[in-house]
Design a protein around this nucleic acid. Structure first.
Length: 420
DNA sequence: GCGATCAGTT
DNA sequence: CACAACTGATCGC
């Protein structure tokens, strides 16, 4: 971020202070248990979770930034060896537990790095977030905004998370005789699971490592590793597939729900609509439809615009932990940066936020929408594909399931009957 | 054995 | 069709 001084979510040699916005894997490449380069600054929650991801981490190098307060640190200018003071504030990014935005100020000016963030516009939490940010910025002008540009394209639109969460609750209630599996990652979507647990007054199954994470986060009563206690299970995103759901359905009727910012992750399912119809008659959708004064003729793009059924057993709901396009726009209007850069560059085409939002803050538009940095990947793996022995702790309904056929890509499903 | 990087999955 | 986040293989040390 500043040559020879600080790095945010980058772990190469050469900085004097490193900052970790959150613990997702795509922000920790290069970070490991043997880290010894320099101090790392992160939120209290991230600091609490970090040793679980990186056992034996040298905690003397880990420094907590309390949300909403300025922390000063002294660094040496690489060229002149003179001391320079830097101030940093961590602000809740509402992305996953522990995720923060980082606001820096010093002689170099003022920079804001959003990390990954969701900037919701409506609701009490949004209002608090807005106040917090404005309070932090005060009269400072943000010279450079480093922006989570994941969904920085007008086509990316989705509802607030509480609406998406309720859609998921309605899918569950409209399938009273089914088990439910929800695909989640190692961190994130806790609020969604809490919403479900509270709305339905049930516990939620998670795999054992995830239960440890839940306990570290302070959730002690809602989650369980005992499948007999609930019909709703959160399973690893990576174990969630059409094959998995079809396999589960050979044993017990099971519906899969995939929360994602993208409207769908596979070809939409063209079925007879039986399950979908039952969803449409659920409480939330009925009230929505009547409030609009008529029945939607297009079920896919109507009130349930973000609920996609792309397989007879699977629903995709647009529950996103990244900001939508209109939310990014709102955020930029608030911050009014002098300049900005996208921090997401792993995608095949990098979207320059200045292209869409430059005029909002008086930055000249770049002539090109995309900055192509395609990397061509070889496709020449000719070896015999081994059947993968993937451990998929799916929390089976049945007591003894050791292996199921999964076609070409084998998935081993192991029994996981742990008690709390 | 560890970590970085690449390839591939959902 | 897309992404973020992840797992697993491979390679160099």
């Amino acid at each position: 971020m500043m040559e020879g001084l600080i790095s945010v979510d980058r772990w190469a040699e050469g900085s004097q202070a490193y900052f970790l916005t959150h613990l997702h894997a795509d922000h920790t490449h290069g970070l490991s248990s043997t880290w010894a380069k320099a101090p790392i600054f992160c939120s209290r929650t991230t600091a609490k979770l970090l040793p679980f991801k990186f056992p034996n981490f040298d905690l003397s190098l880990l420094h907590v930034l309390d949300l909403g307060s300025w922390h000063s640190l002294s660094l040496l200018l690489p060229c002149s060896a003179s001391k320079v003071t830097l101030q940093v504030m961590a602000i809740d990014a509402h992305h996953c537990p522990g995720a923060v935005m980082l606001l820096f100020r010093g002689e170099f000016g003022c920079m804001l790095n959003t990390g990954d963030f969701r900037w919701e516009i409506n609701g009490e939490r949004a209002k608090l977030g807005r106040e917090m940010l404005l309070n932090a910025l005060k009269d400072d002008v943000v010279d450079v905004l480093y922006l989570d540009n994941t969904y920085c394209n007008p086509s990316y639109q989705f509802p607030p998370r509480d609406v998406a969460a309720q859609q998921i609750v309605d899918i569950i209630t409209s399938h009273p005789g089914h088990d439910i599996v929800i695909g989640i990652n190692t961190l994130g979507k806790e609020d969604l699971l809490l919403h479900i647990a509270k709305a339905l007054n049930i516990k939620i199954w998670v795999w054992p490592e995830r239960l440890q994470t839940m306990h570290l986060l302070g959730y002690h009563d809602i989650f369980t590793t005992d499948t007999s206690l609930t019909r709703v299970r959160a399973i690893p995103r990576y174990s969630f597939s059409i094959d998995t759901l079809e396999g589960l359905n050979t044993m017990y009727p099971t519906i899969g729900i995939i929360p994602s910012g993208l409207p769908w992750v596979a070809k939409p399912f063209e079925g007879d609509g039986k399950l979908f119809d039952s969803l449409l008659t659920s409480r939330y959708n009925r009230s929505k439809e009547s409030s609009r004064g008529g029945k939607q003729n297009d079920k896919i793009h109507g009130n349930l615009g973000s609920v996609k059924r792309f397989h007879k057993y699977i629903y995709s709901v647009q529950y996103s932990d990244h900001s939508s396009y209109p939310e990014i726009e709102e955020f930029i209007k608030l911050v009014q940066p002098i300049n900005m850069k996208g921090i997401v560059s792993s995608s095949s085409c990098y979207v320059d936020p200045v292209y869409y939002f430059g005029r909002i803050c008086g930055i000249n538009q770049p002539s090109q929408k995309f900055d192509h940095q395609h990397q061509k990947f070889g496709r020449g793996y000719n070896g015999i594909k081994k059947k993968k022995n993937r451990v998929g702790p799916l929390g089976f309904h049945l007591n003894r399931v050791t292996e199921m056929r999964r076609g070409r890509r084998g998935v081993k499903l192991e029994e996981n009957e742990c008690s709390e």
